[in-house]
Design a protein around this nucleic acid. Structure first.
Length: 766
DNA sequence: ATAGGGTTAG
């Protein structure tokens, strides 16, 4: 044992001293406490012993046994006993590793200062450990500063820095570093290659990922790295939704680790191959490999991602049955999974069972409530969290913002934005995108655009959010301009980008542009059109009246069209009053989904517009026979930070009398302006709002009346509706905007309508 | 090598 004590630093740079196993460590500690660190333990030879050696051995042992706090306590003990001066470049990495494990940025910085004062700041091992420490504590900038100042670097320094960038999701920086490595002639180590594969997996860039795969096949013969490199490749293929390639690699892998299995099963779940995932899990157990905590964390998280409650519950049961301690991370993952599956009850129960709660667990519960749109609970929980002196982080704020976006509550969204600024929370790409998305969905594209322009970093998601914003607001031209701007920035569009582009074209009548971009998507960008893209194309052509061409697309698309595709055609037939084709579409929809009530209604509307009243009645009778229910129409408006909901004919509002008086006034003024309710139109649109309430009491009109009585003259009125706005309300809103000199911004299920001076921004495309 | 958050036709 003696010769172990002062062995030379290992190449990892983090375990300069040898270490003991957990049991020995505890023994050693007990001995030191008894002797105040001044007598040697039997592990030491007398001649080598110093009190500092006791500390050092203890520190490296605790760190390597993943007890960072114990390790750091030893350091604090050293400091109070004036023994810290004995720290050298061999033990510093071990302490820094403990700081990383415990996320103690303050102690880490202190040790950095110590290293600088004592001439260890240019030691390669110390620097490598510093980089890791800073990154794990969330200070990527400090990590790269350390790297930049290093007088000399070894292979580990380069791959450490690369790993830091990848873990912090700074993929652009990571790629820049790889280019620099190639430029200065540093060969990519196995570890560096793993990080590089991670970059492409996260960027969903399979082309480059495949290239790295090829490079490895040709250049890497290191057998020690086989399993980890292949595992990284499997993960990359899974993330890029190429399960077949992943499975092939996995099957050929000579030795599989728990991580290989984890990654493979995770990939199955992500691609919704649940049975295969479960089978693989059992195969893993049969091969006597057992899941660790991270395995379960990953799999449970993945269940949330694809919203598979059953499998999620199964893993929950598995960990209970197999004696996994309920760590904070596991509970958080479970809360997150239940939240994404819409099971707030389970999420809440798990949350209540936790004694000491951190930001992550609070954020997970908040996002669970956000998923089911519980505005009050979300903001109350947020305040409760602050009362408990837990500080929110960027992830918490993203949840709040996406709820504000969904609910369209601009005031609350602005409050959240202000909170971020007031508390100096770091705004990264994701948070910035969440802000842009919030402003877009709350109806303020101008602020969204300025945030977008000022953003220091833009990824594809942010570009997409901004383009989707323009398309929702009917700004087709702006969306297309942004697309070419993105191209000139060299950012590759993805499938989602094109959905926004087609949507934008469709809502601005840009048929030629839309078709052109469909071709570019396929031929220039190599994106295989999905069902969604064909849906957009049908909508684009149909809206513009090219019904036959749209029908042709459906007949010739490579997959079986779903109800949504036929629904787009049916809606176009209704718009252009093509009864024959409409019937074809309606029949297809009912074949595919006999329970689908929306389309039954649409079908009856087509009959109504052709004045075939007997057919209308028969469709209605079939519907009530099958017990089909429509989604009730709902509108809401935010005034002074609180949200007021209205159903059609609603009388539950506290100011009901005033609201209905206002509606009466609106009706009189509308009639004076020459407006008559269009009863034919009513029939055409009963799909969207219950028929029993008269037109005047449609939910958006009630919300409008409420807005008029509770906001200052001249301020814009913002209304959100869960269904499509009906023709009648649309016509009324145009006039109302003029009568009351208000800008009215209505977000319906499809898009925004900006009413002003008697006009609507949608120009009939909706 | 596996571990929270953002973008998606009708």
């Amino acid at each position: 044992m003696n010769q172990l004590i002062l062995s030379s630093p290992s190449s990892s740079g983090c375990s300069g001293y040898s270490h003991l196993n957990l049991q020995q460590t505890h023994q050693l500690h007990a001995h030191f406490i008894k002797t105040q660190f001044h007598n040697p333990h039997p592990f030491f030879s007398q001649s080598h012993f110093t009190p500092e050696a006791n500390y050092n051995l203890l520190i490296s042992s605790y760190t390597n046994n993943h007890l960072p706090q114990a390790s750091l306590n030893c350091y604090l003990h050293m400091r109070t006993n004036d023994a810290a001066a004995a720290l050298d470049n061999f033990i510093l990495p071990s302490l820094l590793k403990a700081c990383a494990q415990a996320s103690s940025a303050d102690l880490g910085r202190e040790l950095h200062g110590f290293a600088q004062k004592n001439g260890f700041a240019s030691d390669v091992f110390v620097c490598n450990a510093l980089m890791n420490m800073y990154e794990k504590c969330g200070c990527l900038v400090s990590a790269s500063l350390v790297f930049d100042k290093m007088p000399e670097r070894d292979v580990v320094s380069w791959s450490t820095m690369l790993g830091c960038y990848v873990r912090s999701k700074a993929f652009g920086e990571a790629l820049r570093l790889v280019r620099e490595m190639q430029f200065v002639g540093v060969k990519l180590s196995g570890v560096a290659l793993i990080s590089l594969i991670g970059v492409f997996g996260n960027l969903l860039d399979m082309k480059s990922g495949r290239a790295v795969h090829g490079y490895i096949m040709r250049n890497v013969g290191d057998e020690k790295m086989e399993v980890s490199l292949t595992t990284a490749l499997i993960d990359m293929y899974c993330k890029c939704e190429c399960l077949a390639s992943a499975q092939r690699l996995f099957d050929r892998l000579s030795k599989r680790s728990v991580v290989s299995w984890t990654v493979m099963i995770k990939g199955c779940i992500r691609s919704c191959r649940l049975v295969e995932g479960a089978k693989n899990f059992n195969r893993m157990l049969e091969e006597k490999l057992f899941p660790n905590e991270i395995t379960l964390l990953s799999l449970i998280t993945e269940c949330g991602f694809v919203k598979t409650l059953d499998l999620g519950k199964w893993f929950h049961a598995y960990l209970l049955r197999n004696g996994f301690g309920m760590s904070l991370a596991l509970v958080t993952a479970l809360i997150d999974m239940y939240g994404k599956c819409g099971q707030v009850g389970y999420a809440r129960a798990l949350f209540n069972g936790v004694e000491k709660k951190d930001v992550k667990i609070w954020s997970a519960l908040i996002s669970a409530y956000a998923h089911v749109s519980c505005m009050d609970q979300v903001f109350n929980l947020f305040l409760e969290m602050l009362d408990n002196e837990v500080k929110p982080n960027k992830v918490t704020m993203v949840s709040l913002l996406s709820l504000c976006a969904e609910a369209g509550t601009l005031d609350l969204g602005k409050w959240t934005h202000a909170y971020i600024n007031r508390h100096g929370l770091e705004v990264d790409v994701i948070l910035e995108t969440a802000l842009i998305n919030m402003y877009v969905k709350c109806g303020d594209v101008t602020i969204a655009r300025s945030l977008f322009d000022e953003a220091t970093q833009r990824d594809i998601h942010m570009w997409n959010a901004m383009m989707a914003g323009f398309s929702m607001h009917g700004c087709g031209k702006e969306a297309l301009e942004l697309f070419s701007e993105m191209e000139s920035h060299g950012v590759e569009p993805n499938d989602i980008t094109f959905i926004s582009i087609f949507h934008a074209c469709s809502h601005s009548g840009l048929v030629v542009e839309g078709k052109k971009h469909f071709n570019r998507m396929v031929h220039n960008f190599g994106i295989v059109p999905k069902m969604e893209h064909y849906g957009c194309l049908v909508d684009l052509l149909g809206r513009a009246g090219h019904l036959e061409e749209a029908h042709n697309i459906i007949e010739n698309m490579p997959m079986r069209p779903n109800t949504i595709i036929w629904g787009a055609l049916l809606a176009a037939c209704k718009l252009h009053k093509n009864l024959a084709l409409g019937e074809v579409a309606a029949r297809k929809i009912l074949e595919l989904d006999p329970q689908n009530c929306g389309y039954s209604v649409l079908k009856s509307n087509i009959y109504a517009s052709a004045k075939r009243w007997n057919d209308v009645t028969s469709v209605r009778e079939t519907m009530s026979h099958l017990g089909m229910k429509k989604e009730p129409g709902l509108s809401w408006i935010e005034v002074n930070g609180s949200v007021h909901h209205f159903k059609s004919g609603d009388k539950t509002c506290t100011q009901t009398t005033k609201v209905y008086e206002m509606v009466a006034e609106m009706c009189i003024k509308l009639r004076e302006a020459g407006y008559t309710p269009n009863t034919a139109e009513v029939l055409l649109n009963i799909d969207e709002e219950e028929k029993e309430s008269a037109l005047s009491y449609h939910s958006e009109k009630l919300a409008m009346a409420f807005g008029l009585i509770s906001t200052a003259p001249g301020t814009p009125i913002r209304i959100i509706k869960n269904l499509r706005i009906c023709d009648d309300c649309h016509a009324a809103m145009k006039l109302l905007s003029k009568i009351y000199a208000r800008t009215i911004i209505v977000r319906d299920r499809n898009r925004f309508h900006h009413f002003s001076e008697g006009y609507c921004s949608c120009l009939g495309y909706w």
